[in-house]
């Protein structure tokens, strides 16, 4: 039970990062972006490439950081991957979403995002192979926190959680203390009013894709670090990430952060009663429960 809770918090942290970017894009551009979870894959794979690159060029970065399986090379690769993934998100918008939007076919954006997701996922599979990969093949032993009940945590997991909480805190400071943060929230809540209030929407759209892509890259690397990397990361995480945004309320950044943890924990606790084969179904059950009890989520407001 406690082990499930801990695992849930960990996956929850990853979902939070994914859902934050998704909810901002979804609210600002008014469409359910089914390709957002593929940004996690792009993040994980580009970090993999950069890590190899840094290790080859700068051999001294191949050492691991303290008790973690993460190398110094991966730490730097993570930052490079955030930049690449953010840039990819901006590029996809420019190549596809912006054009569909400008044709006035806003409803078709969902279709476009599905098509894009299919393309990204399968191109990754073609380039990197369908097999799963790991950042590190070294086996890192989990620290046993308690024997009865048996609770184990890996150092990597603690690091992932700590970094996520740090980023969430930094995001919180920006959103609650700076006018730039207010502008981001304003755009998420009401894009046309934001524009009337002097916010340059085009520039903000680029910013939001960059932030969303960067956070998704982190989430992807963290997922790869605590689980494994495979071309189907996006397929497996798309529904949980959507569930997190719905739990939090579409458009609410704080809602998405909290929603990620709620979905992660609930999905893991559900496995104490459900056979593990059913775990892909749990996010949908959470969505159904939210729609029944509180359709607009924790922080969402009723708006068309």
């Amino acid at each position: 039970m406690i082990q499930h809770l801990i695992d849930g918090i960990l996956i929850g942290a990853i979902l939070s990062l994914g859902a934050t970017g998704l909810t901002m894009v979804m609210h600002m551009l008014r469409f359910a972006n089914f390709s957002h979870a593929e940004l996690l894959s792009i993040g994980a794979y580009s970090a993999l490439v950069f890590e190899q690159l840094f290790k080859a060029v700068l051999p001294f970065t191949a050492g691991t950081i303290g008790p973690l399986s993460m190398t110094w090379a991966l730490a730097v690769a993570m930052i490079a991957s955030m930049a690449v993934t953010g840039a990819s998100a901006v590029l996809f918008d420019k190549l596809i979403f912006k054009r569909v939007r400008e044709k006035g076919e806003e409803l078709s954006m969902v279709f476009a995002s599905f098509g894009l997701a299919l393309i990204i996922r399968n191109v990754i599979g073609l380039v990197f192979g369908l097999q799963t990969q790991l950042f590190s093949k070294d086996i890192i032993f989990a620290t046993v926190l308690s024997r009865d009940p048996l609770i184990m945590v890996k150092p990597d997991q603690i690091a992932v959680l700590a970094i996520t909480l740090l980023i969430i805190f930094a995001l919180h400071l920006i959103l609650s203390r700076t006018t730039y943060g207010y502008a981001l929230r304003a755009v998420a809540e009401n894009p046309s009013l934001a524009q009337v209030n002097g916010i340059n929407l085009q520039r903000m759209i680029v910013t939001v894709w960059l932030i969303g892509g960067g956070l998704a890259a982190l989430a992807g690397v963290f997922y790869g670090l605590t689980n494994q990397i495979s071309p189907v990361i996006g397929r497996d995480l798309v529904l949980p990430v959507f569930a997190a945004t719905i739990v939090g309320g579409l458009g609410s950044i704080y809602g998405a952060l909290l929603g990620g943890f709620i979905v992660g924990i609930a999905a893991n606790l559900a496995l104490t009663v459900l056979p593990s084969g059913y775990s892909p179904s749990v996010p949908f059950l959470i969505i159904l429960a939210v729609l029944l009890v509180r359709p607009h989520g924790l922080f969402g407001e009723e708006r068309q």
Binding site: T179, R185, G198
Partner: peptide
């Protein structure tokens, strides 16, 4: 604007600071 002319999720002070940010 006619409706939805303030940012509901921001505080009153944040709304004003946003409008004043330039």
């Amino acid at each position: 604007p006619q409706i939805d002319n303030i940012f509901r999720s921001l505080t009153i002070r944040q709304n004003l600071e946003l409008a004043l940010r330039h």
